[in-house]
Design a protein around this nucleic acid. Structure first.
Length: 446
DNA sequence: AACCTCACG
DNA sequence: ACGTACGTGAGGTTC
C-alpha cells in the first residue's frame, strides 16, 4: 500500500519519543477509535505520525491582528444598532431580530407576507436564508433581516470571538484538531473552529486579513484542485472523466461540453454552472429533486440532465451502484486506503433512512480518500521539514488546504516541499494538482 | 439540552 | 406516498 512513502514503525517510534508529551493526550482516544473501527492498518502509517504533526500545529498556533478585528467590531456594532431601529420603524413593533421564532411571527402572522408559510417539524416558521431570499420582494423588512443576520453572524462568531481566544503566553490562537470525531476520516477543528472562517462573501472574507504571519515571515497557502472529483475519476475508472483530467481540462467545462454535445469553446456560463452542480451532486448522492432545487429547473429537466451525465460518464453510474451493493453485502464501504465507514441503515425498511445510507455509501469513500491523502501529505511534509531543518511551520488544515507560517528566506524551499509532497502523496489514475499563493495574510495568500 | 440558523470544505 | 445532496462546529434563543 503506502508503506514506502510513509514512516516505518522504527521511524515512528523514534519521532514519538521526541514528542512524547505532545502526543500523549491524543494517543489514547485515537488508539481506541482505531481499534473499534478495525483500522489498525492506518495506525502506524497515518494516524500515529499525524498525532505529532497535529500537536505541533496546535502548539504553533496562528497569529491574529486583533487591533484590526476590534476596529471592525465597532463598525459592525453600529450597523446592527441602526438596522434594529429601522426594523422597529418598518414593522411598528419591537422584536428580537436574532430570534427565528419572533422573526417568523412578524413576517407570517403579523405582516402576512405570504399565504402558506413553510414550517419546521416543531411547528415553527422556517426563516432560513433560502426562504427569506425567495420572499425578499414581498416586504422591505425581509432584506433588513437578511442584512442583520449576515452582520450579526460575522460579529459574534468571528470578530468578537476570535480575539477572546488569543493565548496570553503566545499571543496566538491555538485551535484543537480533533482526530476521532468524523465519520469519514476528516479532521475537525474546535475552540475555535478555524475550518469555517468566511471566504465566500466579500464582507466576510475580510476577516481573513486578520490571520497574519510572524515578523519576517509570509503566509503560504496550498490547496488541492478538485480533489474529490479526481478521486471519483480514480475510483470509478471512468474513461471520459479520467481523460478529461489527464488532458488538463477544466472538469466542469469538459463535463458540460459532453453532456450538451458541444465543443468546449461553445460552453456557456449556464451550461457550465449546470454541469458543476451535477458534478457536486454526484459526489453527494444525487437526486433529480435535489438537483432541480439547486439549479432552479424542473424535475424533468433535472432528470434529463442526470441521464445525460450518466451517458457521458457511464462508469460513474457503475461506481455508484457498486458502492451501494458493497455496503449492502458487507455493512461498510471503504476508502482507497481501507478506512471503513459502517452503514447499519443500508438495508433499512424505511426508504428515507435507507436512501440516506445509500448516499453515505457513495460519498464516504470519496470524502474519506481525500482526507486520507491530505493526512499522508501532512505526515510527509512534517518529516521533510524535520529532515531538512526547516524552521517554517505548518499551522492550519482546512480539508483540502494547508497553510504555513514561512520564514522569508525559506519560501522557495517550503514551496517545493509542500507542493511536491501534496501532489505525490498518492498516485491516482489522474494527476493530483496543488495550487498555492503567498501573501501578508490568509486572504492575500488564498 | 434541543432547536434553528449559518460559517466552511 | 414519502422526503430530499455529503461532512463538520458555534452562537443565540427557547424550553
Amino acid at each position: 500500500m503506502a508503506d514506502e512513502i510513509l514512516l516505518t514503525r522504527e521511524g515512528y517510534e523514534k519521532i514519538v519519543k521526541e514528542h512524547e508529551e505532545l502526543v500523549s493526550v491524543r494517543r489514547a482516544e485515537v488508539a481506541e477509535k482505531i481499534k473499534e473501527e478495525k483500522l489498525e492498518h492506518l495506525f502506524y502509517d497515518i494516524e500515529m505520525p499525524l498525532m505529532k504533526c497535529l500537536a505541533k500545529m496546535e502548539l504553533n498556533g496562528v497569529r491574529i491582528d486583533s487591533a484590526s478585528l476590534n476596529a471592525s467590531a465597532d463598525k459592525l456594532r453600529e450597523e446592527i444598532f441602526s438596522i434594529q431601529n429601522e426594523a422597529i420603524e418598518m414593522t411598528g413593533e419591537e422584536f428580537n431580530l436574532s430570534s427565528a421564532k419572533q422573526v417568523g411571527e412578524i413576517l407570517f402572522d403579523k405582516l402576512k407576507i405570504v399565504e402558506k408559510a413553510k414550517k419546521t417539524k416543531t411547528g415553527q416558521y422556517v426563516t432560513s436564508e433560502e426562504v427569506l431570499e425567495s420572499l425578499s420582494s414581498k416586504h422591505p423588512i425581509v432584506k433588513k433581516i437578511l442584512e442583520y443576520r449576515g452582520i450579526k453572524k460575522l460579529l459574534s462568531t468571528y470578530v468578537e470571538a476570535l480575539p477572546e481566544m488569543i493565548n496570553a503566553k503566545t499571543g496566538k490562537i491555538h485551535t484543537s484538531y480533533n482526530q476521532t470525531v468524523t465519520a469519514t476520516g476528516r479532521l475537525s477543528s474546535s475552540n475555535p473552529n478555524l475550518q469555517n472562517i468566511p471566504i465566500r462573501d466579500e464582507m466576510g472574507k475580510e476577516i481573513r486579513r486578520a490571520f497574519i504571519p510572524d515578523e519576517g515571515h509570509v503566509f503560504f497557502s496550498a490547496d488541492y484542485s478538485q480533489i474529490e472529483l479526481r478521486i471519483m475519476a480514480h475510483l470509478s475508472g471512468d474513461e471520459n472523466m479520467v481523460n478529461a483530467f489527464n488532458a488538463g481540462e477544466d472538469i466542469h467545462t469538459a463535463t458540460s461540453a459532453k453532456i450538451y454535445g458541444v465543443e468546449i469553446s461553445e460552453v456557456t456560463k449556464d451550461m457550465r454552472r449546470n454541469a458543476k452542480t451535477a458534478n457536486f451532486g454526484i459526489i453527494y448522492g444525487i437526486s433529480a429533486f435535489g438537483l432541480s432545487e439547486r439549479l432552479g429547473i424542473s424535475r424533468t429537466e433535472a432528470k434529463t440532465l442526470i441521464e445525460g451525465y450518466f451517458k457521458t460518464y457511464p462508469q460513474v453510474q457503475e461506481y455508484i451502484s457498486n458502492s451501494i451493493n458493497k455496503a449492502k453485502d458487507n455493512g461498510y464501504v471503504e476508502t482507497i486506503f481501507g478506512r471503513k465507514r459502517y452503514l447499519s441503515d443500508i438495508n433499512s425498511a424505511n426508504s428515507v433512512v435507507r436512501a440516506f445510507a445509500e448516499r453515505n455509501a457513495v460519498n464516504a469513500p470519496i470524502q474519506g480518500s481525500a482526507a486520507d491523502i491530505i493526512k499522508i501529505a501532512m505526515v510527509n511534509i512534517d518529516r521533510r521539514f524535520t529532515q531538512e531543518n526547516i524552521q517554517s511551520q505548518m499551522i492550519l488544515q482546512v480539508h483540502d488546504e494547508l497553510n504555513f507560517n514561512v520564514l522569508e528566506s525559506e519560501l522557495e524551499k517550503v514551496k517545493e516541499i509542500v507542493i511536491e509532497e501534496m501532489q505525490n502523496a498518492y498516485k491516482l489514475r489522474v494527476p493530483l494538482i496543488a495550487d498555492y499563493g503567498v501573501g501578508k495574510n490568509w486572504l492575500e495568500a488564498h
